[in-house]
Amino acid sequence: MLFSLLIAPAAAEAALPPSNPGTPPMSDSPWSLLPAASANAEALDTLYIFFWVLCGIAFVGMIGVQAYFMWKYKKPAHGHAKTSPLTHNGKLEFIWSAIPTFFFVILFAWGEIEYMKQVTPPPDAMDVRVTGQKWSWTIEYPEVKGCSLTNDLYVPVGKPMRLTMTSVDVIHSFYLPAFRLKKDVVPGRYTVLWFEATKPGLYPLMCTEYCGDEHSSMVGRVHVVPQEEYDAVLAKACELKQGDAESAEDFGARVVTRGGCASCHTTDGTVKTGPSFKGLFGKSETLADGSTVTVDENYIRESILEPNAKIVSGFSLQMPSFAGRFDDKQIAALIAYIKAQK
């Protein structure tokens, strides 16, 4: 395995997990919830608040009754008073059983209704494919040919989005805190999540299933934009072409930023999940089968498209294939970039 993607010094900061992945602004009050940015979040917040109000009323009522009994039946100054014989009260027992049961049924029915809404995507929802891998999210838009983004999900306001998700390695968990949504992403199968964003903004995307030593780096951003701007914004985000005045190395750096590979590789010689890129080009590498190979243009290209073909000794197979994600010009730019890493 050579690399998941390449990373240039100029692109290192951009390719690293963002220091501010778009966390919604927090209230000064520790009692406030995160801003609700989807219809689902608003519905769940209402249920959540109702639950805690109910718990608060029950708590105050129980403590109040205990305090009253402690006061009423405290030891009198003249000594203990003999109480009358006690027997059970059927009416009282029914009441204190019926009241909690009534509210438990309300909570169950309310939760079940919201759950069924959340697991049933509307027929007009836009389809997006999500693939989790150590340690990034690949977002693909079927309606935009060749559009494959890493760690950036673009969403129009007021339009249902259906995410069909899978993993290429281990179990991940796709989490959108501002949308109050979380779903496991499992290798070998598909899971589905849908939502309808209600507020434009930048929101965090996280993995909440421990998936390895760089688990905390598996973060991204959800860009919620107005419906009338969505097509243009998505087209611009998906565009990845070399500028007229841009060198191949600089273009390769932008391709790296799109891929987001800093969680697996470094440029300072430090070894992480994959080999470091520092001084890699022209180096003789020992492979897992004991043979050796020189890191040249053909080897780099093969490692991008067929990472299983030649795995460097000391590294496990964790890199997915990038065939179909980068065209020949983009791969050539990556090769030009890695040549410059001394």
Rank of each mutant, 00 (worst) to 15 (best):
P17T: 13
F281W: 11
P9L: 07
E112R: 12
A8C: 07
Y48V: 06
G64D: 07
F179L: 12
L107V: 14
T131K: 11
A332K: 13
K329Q: 11
M218T: 08
G90Q: 09
G61P: 02
K145R: 14
A288W: 04
S217Y: 13
D127T: 05
C264A: 09
P307M: 10
S97C: 08
T120I: 03
A39L: 14
R189L: 10
F281L: 00
W137R: 04
A262G: 07
H88Y: 13
W71R: 12
V130P: 03
T46F: 02
S27I: 05
P226E: 10
F195C: 12
S303D: 07
Q227T: 14
S29R: 09
P142R: 10
H80D: 11
R325G: 11
Y73G: 08
V144G: 04
R221S: 15
M70G: 07
K329P: 03
G279T: 01
E93D: 10
M319Q: 13
C261K: 03
S276L: 04
C55W: 03
A253H: 06
I331D: 02
A37N: 09
P100I: 05
C238H: 13
P200G: 06
A37Y: 07
Y299V: 04
C261H: 10
T164P: 00
G188W: 03
P204I: 04
A8E: 06
A109N: 03
P76N: 04
Y175M: 06
K91P: 02
P30F: 02
A253L: 10
E246V: 14
D213Q: 09
N20C: 10
Y154C: 07
Q66A: 14
S303H: 00
E112A: 15
A332G: 09
G64W: 03
G201K: 01
K236I: 04
R325Q: 15
T164Q: 02
V144Q: 13
M161K: 06
L280C: 02
A340V: 01
K339N: 06
A109F: 01
G324H: 07
T191D: 10
I335Y: 00
T270Q: 12
V293E: 00
S97R: 10
L149W: 06
H88W: 12
A248K: 15
G220W: 07
A11K: 06
V312N: 05
L16N: 10
N89W: 11
V293D: 00
R180P: 06
A336P: 00
Y68V: 15
S32H: 08
G56H: 02
G220H: 08
E93H: 08
A39V: 13
E229M: 05
L149G: 09
K339H: 05
C147D: 13
Y203M: 09
G314F: 05
C207W: 04
T150R: 11
F50I: 00
T23P: 09
I106Q: 06
K145H: 09
C211Y: 01
A237K: 14
P123M: 05
A8H: 09
K182F: 13
A309P: 01
P275R: 00
W96Q: 10
P123N: 11
D327A: 03
M161S: 08
S216K: 13
K241D: 10
L202G: 08
L54N: 14
V233F: 03
A15H: 09
E239G: 09
V192I: 13
T273P: 03
V53E: 09
P307Y: 07
S167Y: 01
A323E: 14
C211F: 01
G269L: 05
T164K: 02
Y190D: 14
E196W: 05
